[in-house]
Amino acid sequence: MTIYSTLLGGNFEKLHPKLQHRYTLPIDQTFYAEGHMQQIQTGSKLLLPLYLFASKLNFLFPESGENIPFTVANCCRINQNDEAEVSWERSFFFPESVRKFNAKMTIDLEKQLVKDYLGDVPLFYSDLLFKVTKEGFLMITSGTQKVVVGNKVLKIPNIFRGRVVVLEGYDEAKDVYTIHVSIYNSLIGRIMTYAGEFTESGR
């Protein structure tokens, strides 16, 4: 068992069997997949400085587009704190650039949540709550978010939070995984949304 099956407990078995396979993630074995995003949309031009800064950390990025090829790789390893940690490496192949959206996740069993450190330099942190839907899909929503500055951890006020909703499923008719992600803010609206399909593959 790795972090997601440990966190979800008995509910893990309520996931669609393909999602159970995807999220079992044995130690040091990589789940690799490729597909396309039917649509990627970013937000207001006022957010361009944030996008440009975050893109240097392999987090957010400024491009939007349709039918964008992408890959995802997940691997669970034991980190320096002796915790099971899952790396997320997502690459989006735009016509003129390749953008990444990376993260590392561990779990807090006491609080029953996932700790998500965003980007290759973990300046941004978010609590994530995992839930299995009645259809056997995985729904992920965000909670508390923080900025890490040196040895200081600063909580982001709720009004400035990027509220995240992720729904990952499996389409049996098409034999593909499906993904829908929405990141929005109550003041400025959409920060980023994307929706697509993918299949497991070997590198």
Results as ranks from 00 to 15, higher is better:
Ala73Ser: 11
Phe61Trp: 12
Pro62Glu: 07
Asn102Met: 01
Trp88Asp: 04
Phe93Val: 02
Glu89Asp: 11
Ile68Gly: 12
Glu66Gln: 12
Ala84His: 01
Glu85Ile: 00
Phe101Lys: 01
Ile78Glu: 06
Ala84Ile: 01
Pro69Val: 09
Phe92Pro: 08
Ala73Trp: 02
Phe92Val: 07
Asp82Arg: 03
Ile78Tyr: 07
Val72His: 02
Ile68Arg: 15
Glu89Ser: 14
Phe70Cys: 07
Asn74Thr: 11
Glu63Cys: 11
Ala103Asn: 02
Glu96Cys: 09
Asp82Lys: 05
Glu83Ser: 12
Glu89Val: 12
Phe94Pro: 05
Lys104Thr: 06
Phe101Asp: 01
Glu66Phe: 02
Glu89His: 13
Ile68Ala: 13
Arg77Pro: 02
Arg90Ala: 04
Lys104Glu: 03
Asn74Met: 10
Thr71Cys: 15
Cys75Ser: 14
Ala73Thr: 05
Val72Asn: 03
Pro95Ile: 06
Ser64Met: 03
Glu66Tyr: 03
Cys75Arg: 12
Ala73Leu: 07
Glu63Val: 07
Cys75Lys: 15
Ala84Asp: 00
Lys100Gln: 06
Phe61Leu: 10
Trp88Met: 05
Phe70Gly: 04
Ser64Arg: 03
Ala103Leu: 01
Asn74Pro: 07
Trp88Gly: 02
Glu63Asp: 14
Val86Thr: 12
Trp88Arg: 04
Phe93Asn: 08
Trp88Ser: 04
Phe101Met: 00
Lys100Glu: 04
Val86Cys: 08
Phe92Gln: 04
Val98His: 00
Asn102Pro: 02
Glu96His: 14
Ala84Ser: 01
Glu83Gly: 10
Lys104Met: 04
Pro69Met: 10
Glu85Phe: 00
Thr71Phe: 13
Pro69Gln: 09
Val98Tyr: 00
Val98Ala: 00
Asn79Thr: 11
Glu63Met: 09
Trp88Gln: 03
